[in-house]
Design a binder for these strands. Structure first.
Length: 137
DNA sequence: GCCAACGTTGGC
DNA sequence: GCCAACGTTGGC
């Protein structure tokens, strides 16, 4: 099992919208970056991903699960990019903010801090456990 | 709304 | 295949 972090601006696609989709989930489309694309390709069914709100909130708000592995992104006319399907798993009791992550030595090496522009990032098992604990999950 | 960081594009 | 220019992202 691998862990990931996906980012979305709530004005474009929010955690609440993801939750509303329920168990059938939703395609995670719109990735137009090769590094992020590679991470999508590496996702396996059953992997978990933090759901991060950028711009508004700037915090990890929930946990999603990969329910369909990478396939061509229907919103990409060039055919170069892919998407996966994810469903909302559970929310964090306490959202973990960017400020909290930056302030914590254990998390200061997270891709979220180092590569803030990357929209799909890997998360280590240690980081995963630690953030879950911070989030009260 | 500004600006730094960085990925992508295209000319050579 | 290098590198400058450009565009986009996202924190502040």
């Amino acid at each position: 099992m691998n862990y990931w972090l996906v980012k979305s601006e709530p004005s474009t696609w929010s955690w609440d919208q993801q939750v509303a989709k329920g168990a059938k989930g939703e395609a995670w489309t719109g990735v137009r970056n090769f590094t992020a694309r590679q991470n999508l390709v590496n996702m396996k069914k059953g992997d978990k991903a933090f759901f991060y709100h950028s711009n508004e909130g700037k915090e990890i708000v929930g946990i999603a699960e990969v329910i369909e592995e990478a396939y061509p992104d229907p919103t990409d006319k060039t055919g170069k990019f892919v998407c996966v399907d994810i469903k909302a798993d559970k929310p964090l009791k306490t959202p973990v903010t960017m400020a909290a992550i930056k302030a914590d030595k254990k998390l200061s090496a997270m891709a979220l801090v180092k590569y803030s522009r990357l929209s799909v990032q890997p998360v280590t098992a240690e980081e995963w456990k630690y953030v879950c604990k911070m989030g009260g999950v």
